[in-house]
């Protein structure tokens, strides 16, 4: 733990509060396990112990580097969300992406191109910065709406049609991200 680097003061951290130590342990364990799982999946080496040890060493090196950069926290390794982003939020996002893709495809393929470009401001009332970033990225990921600027709790959105803008203003997506954020 002596390699930890405090970004704000520029010093190496030597003493911890017990809670933050537990937190860092949790996030770094999760990050290390994820790194090693991905290494195993991508390399496909399971029978040569020497190569597996080399992979484990490189994972530990990456973990040490990211600790030095100070990004091992609830944003860098969001273990507090578990797998709910993939099980609950993912299917909803896929459905939204397909619906809005078909809408934008209709606009592009129609000869007259009925554009109704407008800018709206969507309020993001998520507690954490991670939640707001998830919301802004989801808005950009559904074609027809692009989040142009993210300031505190307001997201400036450029929309291609009024229908797409109204869908974002209804706040359905924001409610789902809030649900994701509330850890049980």
């Amino acid at each position: 733990m002596s390699g930890l680097f405090d970004v704000e003061t520029g010093d190496y951290i030597t003493s911890f509060h017990r809670d933050s130590l537990n937190g860092i342990m949790k996030y770094s364990l999760a990050l290390g396990a994820t790194l090693f799982a991905f290494w195993l999946l991508w390399s496909g080496h399971y029978d040569k112990p020497f190569i597996i040890v080399l992979g484990a060493i490189s994972c530990l090196f990456c973990l040490w580097l990211s600790m030095r950069m100070g990004i091992v926290d609830e944003e860098g390794a969001p273990v507090q969300m578990g797998i709910r982003p993939f099980t609950k939020y993912g299917p909803y996002l896929v459905k939204e992406i397909i619906i809005s893709n078909i809408a934008v495809t209709k606009i592009i393929c129609s000869p007259a191109m009925p554009l109704q470009r407008n800018m709206i401001v969507v309020s993001a009332n998520q507690k954490s910065e991670l939640g707001r970033v998830i919301l802004a990225n989801s808005i950009t990921l559904t074609p027809g709406t692009i989040s142009v600027r993210l300031e505190h709790d307001k997201i400036c959105v450029h929309a291609l049609s009024f229908a797409g803008a109204e869908e974002d203003l209804s706040g359905e997506m924001g409610r789902r991200v809030c649900e994701l954020e509330n850890t049980s």
């Binding site: 992406i97 397909i98 893709n101 934008v104 495809t105 592009i108 191109m113 554009l115 470009r117 950009t140 990921l141 559904t142 074609p143 027809g144 692009i146 142009v148 450029h158 291609l160």
Partner: peptide
């Protein structure tokens, strides 16, 4: 599409679906 900000929506289709 006519101008830059609308063109980004076109790029979004190829990137996602």
């Amino acid at each position: 599409l006519p101008e830059f900000f609308s063109r980004m929506h076109g790029g979004g289709i190829t990137d996602t679906l």
